[in-house]
Amino acid sequence: MTESHCILALLDDEPGVLDRVAALCRRRAFNIQSLTVSPASEPGASRMTLVVEATEIGARRVVAHLEKLVNVQSVDLLQSGDLARDLCLARVACGPAARPAVLQLAEVFRARVVDLAADSLVLECTGNRTKVDRFIEVLRPYGLLDLGRSGAVAMARNSEPLALGIPA
C-alpha cells in the first residue's frame, strides 16, 4: 500500500545538490509529492524535506539511495507522529459582504490575514497537509484567485507524542 512518507535530509550546501536528489527520484521513479530546501542551522548545510508517495519498503529504498549521494550528510525517514508543516498563501475573492464569513473560517483554521483589498484578501495558514487541504477546500466556494503552497517542512519529535496530541 502506498502512502505519504516524509524524509528529512541534511545536504552539503553546494551547487548541484538539488539536481542530484531530483535526478535520483526521476531515475528510480520515486513519486515526489513535495520537496522543500532551505539553509540549515548548521553552517554549510541545507535542510531538505522530501515527501514521497511510496510503500514502506519503497520509502526505505529512497532513504538508502539518498544515503549513497556523496553530498548528503544524513537522512531520516520520519514516523507518522513526527512534525510536518505546510504553509499556504490563499487569495480569496471576498467583497465586504462575504468578509465576516471568510474571517470566521480563517479563525477556525488559525489563519492570518496578510493582505486586504476591496474585493479580495490573502490568508496565510500553516499546518499539516490534511489541515491545509481542508482549509483550501472550505475557501474554494468563495473563489480562490491564487494559491501558493510550500510543501512540507518537517522535524522529528524528541519524545513520544503526547497521548492527547498537540493540535496541528
Partner: peptide
C-alpha cells in the same frame, strides 16, 4: 554492501 539493492526485485 549497498542496501539500496535490498528488496528491489526480490523480496
Amino acid at each position: 554492501i549497498d542496501r539500496s539493492e535490498f528488496n528491489k526485485n526480490v523480496s
